[in-house]
Write a protein that binds this DNA or RNA. Structure first.
Ligand SMILES: [Zn+2]
Ligand SMILES: [Zn+2]
Ligand SMILES: [Zn+2]
Ligand SMILES: [Zn+2]
Lengths: 145, 145
DNA sequence: CTTAATGTCTCTAGCAACTAGAGGTTCAAG
DNA sequence: CTTGAACCTCTAGTTGCTAGAGACATTAAG
C-alpha cells in the first residue's frame, strides 16, 4: 500500500491534485491508515495513471470520467469511447487551425515593425486595427486546455 | 455617447465583459447618465477594440494592460511592446508543437482501434499505458488561452 | 525515548477570464 | 401611461487545479 506521497511520485500527479480528484469523485475514497492517512493499492495507481495520461492528451475531466466509466463495462462496444477520442481530436485540430492563424498574424506584426517609437510601432497599430490583419482569427476560444 | 449595449455590439464584446474590464481597471470608469447608466465616447471604444483584438490574438489581460500603458507614451521606443508580442509568439509556437504531438497520438489511437469491445479498445488501452505512444507529449500546459 | 524533520490531514481562499442569475431601476416606443 | 427592453449592483459559478494555515502522524537520528 502506498501513501499519497509515494503515489504522487509514482504517477507524476501532485498530492493536492490526487485529493482533488477524490473530492470530485474521479478517484474512489481512499482507504485510511490507523492514523487517518490515505493508502492506495495498484488499482487506484492504474486509474490515476489513466487520468494523468488522458489529461496530458488534453481530455477534460468530464471526458475522462466518461471514459473511466466506459472502461468498467469491458463487454460493451467501444464506439462511445472512440467517439470521445474523436471529439477530442476534432477539438485539437480546431485549436491548431486557430493557433496557426495567430502565429501568422503575430509573425507579420513583428517583422513589419521598424523598431522605432511607440507612435510608429506596427504591433500597437495592428492591435488597434484588425483591418491590418491578413486573415481572420476572430473566433473566441473554447476549452481544450 | 454610446450606452454599454451599443458599445458591446460595436466592439463585439459582451456587456458583462465590459463591466468586468472596468472593474479590473483595464477600462477607465465610465461616465454616467443622469440615471446612472454608463456612457462611452470614441476613446473607450478604441481602447476596447484594442483589447478585443489582442484577446483574439491570445494575449493575456496582463500583457494587454502593459501594451495599453506603453501606448500612452508614443515617443518612447517600442522595444518593450515588440518584446511582449515576441513572447506571445513563442508561447503560441510552443503550444502548436504540443498540440501537434497530441494530434498525432489521438489519430494513432483512433485509427488503430478495431471497433470491437471496450476490452479490446485501443483508445482505452493507450490511455492506460503511455508506452504505447510513439512520441512524448507529457508536458503539462501553461496558459496561452 | 525523545526530538526534529518531514509527511499528511482538513479547510479556506485564490488563479484567469469571464458567465449566469437574482432582484431592482431606467429608458424608449407606442 | 404602460410595457418591455436595457441597464444597474451584487453574488456565485465555471475549469483544474495551487497555495497556505494550523494541527496531527510518521520516521530517522541521537
Ligand atoms: Zn514595434
Ligand atoms: Zn486581426
Ligand atoms: Zn475503440
Ligand atoms: Zn502518451
Amino acid at each position: 500500500m502506498l501513501t499519497i506521497g509515494k503515489l504522487s511520485k509514482t504517477a507524476g500527479v501532485k498530492v493536492p491534485t490526487i485529493r482533488y480528484y477524490e473530492e470530485i469523485g474521479l478517484l474512489p475514497e481512499a482507504e485510511r491508515s490507523a492514523g487517518n492517512q490515505r493508502l492506495y493499492g495498484t488499482a487506484t495507481m492504474d486509474r490515476l495513471s489513466f487520468i494523468r495520461h488522458a489529461r496530458d492528451l488534453g481530455f477534460t475531466l468530464e471526458a475522462i470520467r466518461d471514459l473511466l466509466s466506459l472502461s468498467d463495462t469491458p463487454d460493451q462496444s467501444c464506439a462511445a469511447a472512440d467517439q470521445i477520442a474523436k471529439a477530442q481530436l476534432v477539438a485539437v485540430r480546431d485549436r491548431l487551425v486557430r493557433l496557426r492563424a495567430l502565429e501568422v498574424e503575430l509573425e507579420r506584426m513583428i517583422v513589419q515593425c521598424a523598431q522605432g517609437t511607440i507612435a510608429d510601432c506596427r504591433v500597437i497599430k495592428v492591435l488597434g486595427n484588425h483591418d491590418l490583419c491578413s486573415h481572420e482569427h476572430n473566433q473566441k476560444d473554447q476549452a481544450v486546455q
